[in-house]
Amino acid sequence: MAVKAFSSEWASAFKDEVNKSSNYKSAAKGWKWTVGLVVEAEPDKHFPESKGIVMDLFDGEARDVTVGPAGDAQKCDFVITAPYSRWKEVATKQLDATKGMLQGKLKLKGDLPTIVRYTKASQEMTECTTRVPVEWPDEK
């Protein structure tokens, strides 16, 4: 059943997908930093307020994924910021996250060597987002 985009239900489903992924588990071995995703508001797409997704990831496991204000996500060790429609492109496989970062479509803050070292893990995490059925506010 589809869940509302970037809602608490979405966060829970996403966490489950991450924890089901054996690829993520092996690729993210040794990861010990928090990751924040900032989803910037796009009122014309019926996404009126920015949201922050805080991911507590540790050694191949998603310990917690929560949705709250953008400011919470901005405090994480790594922060990836993009408007709502860009994140939708990532979650629907229209935009590859690695290419998006190289093109500046997804803005990354954090230690670059660490994130590059875990490229496979971040790619698998992106795959996990595509497996969550989502109800997009601009498609109602």
């Binding site: 970062m101 190289l102 093109q103 500046g104 479509k105 803005k107 990354l108 230690d111 670059l112 060597p113 590059v116």
Partner: peptide, 18 residues
Amino acid sequence: PSAFASMLGGLIEANVSS
């Protein structure tokens, strides 16, 4: 600088500094 330029430059700077 393009996003790619910033990323490569930032990566090399962080690598060499640390």
